[in-house]
Amino acid sequence: MTKDIVVIILLLVFILIICAFAQWFILQHSGQMLAAAEPVSAALHRQDWPQARTAMRMLEEEWDRSQRLWKAISDHQDMRDLQSSLEKLALLLEQEDADAAQQELQSLVFSLRHLQENERLYLENIF
């Protein structure tokens, strides 16, 4: 009986660890994506298109590194929005459409911040 209780508590701790890892992963990688989005924004302000495209490639690489696990633990609709935003932004940078690219970048940053905020252990997120 005591052994059963110990096993159940260990399994609950295991679930807790998985949840903590998932939370850490989302916070970490959304933070890295936000950091990688900053050079894109700066290059866009300067209308430096080659630099913006280079920064965009780094942002896409960051996404490619983390997307598989991210898609397994985050809401699929949020992930689709993020993916679509990244693809649109890359296209707009190719077309050198400054206003639309700026708008899309803001939308991407907002989505990433939203994902980050949703994961934080705030009372308003719990209730």
Binding site: I15, C19, I73, D75, H76, Q77
Partner: peptide
């Protein structure tokens, strides 16, 4: 299919 299996699995297991 928009919700992850993970998001149901954790509450069910808990």
């Amino acid at each position: 299919t928009s919700a992850t299996l993970f998001s149901s699995l954790i509450p069910i297991a808990t």
